[in-house]
């Protein structure tokens, strides 16, 4: 049990995919303008990541490795992710058209979210078991959601700040993300 908790803790805080590995920065900057979109994106990504890491584990172990097709890993993982993203998109469009509209392009773009592919590839490289892979994916998604929500609230607050014109918008967003990442370095070496 504790090993799973450790995986979770590691992926959420110590090796946070956004702030320490700099993966998935595109949605991180793109949909962090308001809390609602951030939460929506976080939930969508959590769904996709968890499911995708489980499915890619299955494909990897039952199909690619037995038949010696590991050179197809990236390709098949991307396909799996695309399928899961499609599924998520359909569900969101049905459940919350507003969120669907607001997430806009970023929703299908989860497909190319490097964090998702990165998690799947890292998971297979680290020889995780199925459950470990799921926790790995879930933890990564949780970490992504956490920093996305924190970042969106920070940006909402920064809307009122007297930021110099040259730094308005994404510039101050990136600087803030940099300082966030600096803060997360405090977790490095945590054991």
């Amino acid at each position: 049990m504790s090993e799973y908790a450790l995986i979770l803790l590691t992926t959420v805080l110590v090796n946070n995919f956004v702030l320490t590995q700099f993966l998935g920065l595109c949605p991180f900057m793109g949909v962090s303008r308001t809390l609602e979109t951030a939460v929506g994106m976080g939930l969508a990504t959590t769904f996709v990541l968890t499911l995708a890491s489980a499915l890619s584990f299955l494909i990897d172990h039952w199909l690619l490795q037995p038949y010696d097709l590991t050179y197809l890993r990236t390709l098949s993982f991307i396909l799996i992710i695309a399928i899961v993203v499609q599924f998520a998109e359909i569900v969101i469009r049905q459940r919350s058209p507003l969120l669907h509209r607001v997430l806009g392009l970023y929703l299908p773009l989860i497909t190319t979210n490097c964090a998702v592919l990165g998690v799947a590839l890292l998971s297979s490289r680290q020889h995780h078991s199925l459950l470990e892979a799921v926790f790995f994916g879930f933890g990564a998604a949780l970490g992504f959601t956490l920093v996305l929500v924190l970042f969106s609230l920070l940006r909402e607050r920064l809307n009122g700040a007297n930021v110099p014109d040259a730094f308005k918008g994404n510039a101050i967003g990136l600087i803030t993300a940099g300082i966030m990442s600096l803060a997360f370095m405090g977790f490095s070496g945590l054991s």
Binding site: I59, L63, P66, Y67, D68, L69, L72, S76
Partner: peptide
């Protein structure tokens, strides 16, 4: 390419 690989590809 070996046969199993082909089979796997087809299955995939």
């Amino acid at each position: 390419m070996t046969l199993p690989a082909l089979v796997g590809l087809v299955v995939l």
